[in-house]
Design a protein around this nucleic acid. Structure first.
Lengths: 205, 205
DNA sequence: TGTACATCAGTGAACGCGCGTTCACTGATGTAC
DNA sequence: TGTACATCAGTGAACGCGCGTTCACTGATGTAC
C-alpha cells in the first residue's frame, strides 16, 4: 500500500481548510475549484478523488465551518477561558477585537457569511443556528440581568457583536469602523453589567 | 421622434428596480442579465442600449440602492414619521418588524447585502457608510441617554437592529428567528429609554 | 542494501454549459402629408 | 382621417471565456525479494 491512510485525511483537511478561508474572504459563490485546490497546494483534477462534486465539498465545509474550533483562532489571541466566570466579558472583547476585525480568513463565519447562509439551504441555516445558540448560551451564563431578561439580553448581545462586526467590515473609512466597534463593545459590556472601569466582573448571578 | 423621451427613463428605472430586487434576494454575484431583464419585462439583448456593461449597471444600482427611499417600503407599513420626537422608537419597531423580516426583495440593503458590500469596492462601502450614518443620526436625536453616550448608544442600536435581522434571516427555525427579533427589539427600545416596563441598561463610562 | 514492481495520488488537456457581450434584424411608434 | 415613412426600442442568434467535470496518463511511494 503506497501512501499511509493518514495521507488522504491530511490532504482532504487541507482542501476543506483552503475552501473555508476562501469562502470567508469571497463568499460561497465567487470561489472556483482552481482557487480552492491551489490554496491546498494541488491542481484542479485532483479534486474529484476527494469529493463527488463542488456541492459535496460545500456541504462538508459547512458541516464543520460553524462547529470546528479552527476558525476561533482569533479568539485565542485574547485568551477566552470558557470556564471562567468572566467569559461573557472576554467573549465580547475578543469578538469585537481588532484582531477579529482584520483576520477575515479565519473570521467567525457568522460575521463573514451570514447573508450567504440566508441564501443557502436548511443545512447551512441549521448549522448557523447551532453556533449562534452556543454563543448566546455562553453569554447568558455570565450576565448580570434579572432572571426573565437574561436570555433576551444574551441574544441581543450576540446580535450586537455580530451586527457591529458585519457593519464595521462594510465600511470604507477605517476610523469609522473602529469607532463603531468600540461603541458596540462599550454598550455590549454595559448590557452585561461589565463596566469598563472595573477590571474584573462583579459577582455573577 | 418615435417614443417620448420619458420612455427610456421609465424602462431604465424598471431595469434598475429589477436588479435591486434580485440583488436583495440572491446577492450581487448570483444574478444574471437574463434574470434582470426578465424581471424588467425585456430580453437579454436590450440591456446594452441602456448600460455599457454589467458593472455599469452594478454601479448605477449601488448609487441609489442605499439612498433611494424606494426600498424603505417596509418602513411605511409602520408609518415612521421622521419629524416626530418618537422616531427612534418607530424606526426600531419598523426595522425589526415581521414585515421587514419577510419582505426580502424590498428589504433594507444593509440587512440583505452587508457582506456583499464588504467584498465590493470603495463606492459600495461609502454608500453603505452614508446610509448607516443616516440611521444612526435619526436614532441619536431621539435617545434618552446622557450627552457623551448618545452617539455610542445610537451606533449600537443601529448595529443591533441590523445584526438582529441578519442573524434572524440566517436561521432555519422561524420561531427562533421571531424570538431573536423580539429580544433585539426589547433591548434596543430599552437602550433608547423607550421601555415598556423593561429595565434600563446601565450606561458606560 | 538495492532493485523491480504494483498501487494509487495527482496532473493537465479536453469537453460542455452558462453567461456576458455583440450585432444584424424586426417591428412598434410618432410624424408628415 | 388614413397611409407611407423614418427612427429607434427591443429581439434573439452567435461568439468566447470561465469554470465544473471527466479521463487517460504520469510519477511518487511503500513493499517484496
Amino acid at each position: 500500500m503506497p501512501y499511509p491512510a493518514s495521507h488522504r485525511t491530511k490532504v482532504k483537511k487541507k482542501i476543506v481548510s483552503s475552501a473555508r478561508r476562501l469562502f470567508n474572504r469571497h463568499g460561497f459563490e465567487k470561489v472556483s475549484l482552481d482557487q480552492i485546490m491551489e490554496g491546498a497546494g494541488l491542481t484542479r483534477g485532483g479534486f474529484y478523488s476527494y469529493f463527488e462534486s463542488k456541492s459535496d465539498l460545500y456541504a462538508e465545509v459547512l458541516g464543520c465551518f460553524f462547529t470546528d474550533p479552527e476558525w476561533q483562532s482569533c479568539w485565542d489571541g485574547v485568551e477566552v477561558d470558557l470556564k471562567s466566570k468572566g467569559v461573557g466579558r472576554d467573549v465580547i472583547r475578543a469578538y469585537l477585537s481588532i484582531q477579529h476585525f482584520e483576520d477575515v480568513e479565519n473570521s467567525c463565519p457568522m460575521v463573514a457569511l451570514p447573508t450567504d447562509v440566508t441564501r443557502s439551504g436548511p443545512t447551512a441555516k441549521r448549522a448557523f443556528e447551532t453556533v449562534f445558540a452556543a454563543m448566546v448560551s455562553v453569554l447568558e451564563r455570565s450576565i448580570h440581568a434579572r432572571g426573565r431578561d437574561r436570555h433576551a439580553v444574551a441574544q441581543a448581545m450576540a446580535a450586537l457583536c455580530i451586527g457591529g462586526m458585519v457593519v464595521a467590515r462594510a465600511m470604507e473609512d477605517r476610523r469609522a469602523a473602529d469607532n463603531l466597534r468600540n461603541a458596540c463593545m462599550r454598550v455590549a459590556l454595559a448590557l452585561g453589567g461589565w463596566n469598563r472601569r472595573k477590571p474584573r466582573a462583579r459577582k455573577t448571578a
